[in-house]
Simulated scan of single mutants.
Amino acid sequence: MQKIKDERLQLKNLKNIRVVFIIQTLGILALLGYDLFTKGLDGMTDNPLWFVFMISVIVNAYLSMSISVDHEKAPKSPLKGLYVSLSIVGVLSVIVGMLVSFSEGQTIWNGLLIGGIIFISFLVPVLYIYKLRKDSWDEEMSE
Rank of each mutant, 00 (worst) to 15 (best):
M54A: 12
I118R: 00
L86K: 01
V126K: 02
F102L: 12
Y83K: 14
S93W: 04
S121T: 09
G33H: 02
M44W: 09
L86T: 01
G40R: 03
S121F: 08
Y34F: 13
G33Y: 00
G111A: 03
P75S: 04
I129E: 13
S101E: 10
L127W: 08
I108Q: 15
G43L: 01
L132Y: 00
S121E: 06
P75Y: 00
M54P: 04
Q106K: 15
I118C: 03
L31T: 11
V124T: 12
N110A: 14
L112A: 04
G111K: 03
Y128R: 06
N47W: 07
T45D: 05
V126C: 07
F119H: 11
V52L: 14
S56N: 05
H71A: 15
I55C: 08
L127P: 07
V96R: 03
K76Q: 11
I58C: 07
L36E: 00
I117K: 12
L123Y: 03
I120H: 10
K73D: 09
T107D: 06
D70G: 15
S101W: 11
E104L: 15
V126Y: 00
G116R: 01
V84F: 05
V69A: 02
K76L: 14
V52G: 10
L49H: 00
P48W: 04
M98T: 12
K80V: 13
G43V: 02
L82R: 04
K76Y: 04
K73Q: 11
V89I: 14
N60K: 09
A61P: 05
S93Y: 04
Y34Q: 10
S56P: 03
V94D: 03
E72C: 04
F51L: 15
E72P: 04
L79D: 07
D35I: 05
G81Y: 01
M44R: 12
T38N: 09
V94A: 15
E72H: 07
V126P: 01
I55Y: 13
K131E: 11
G90I: 10
S93L: 05
I55R: 07
I95Q: 06
I114D: 02
E104P: 11
F53M: 10
Y34L: 15
M98F: 07
I118M: 02
D35K: 12
F53R: 13
F119N: 03
L63M: 13
K80T: 05
V126W: 02
K39A: 12
L49T: 00
Y130C: 09
V69S: 01
Y34G: 10
N47E: 13
I117N: 13
L123P: 01
S93D: 04
S121C: 15
Y128P: 04
N47S: 15
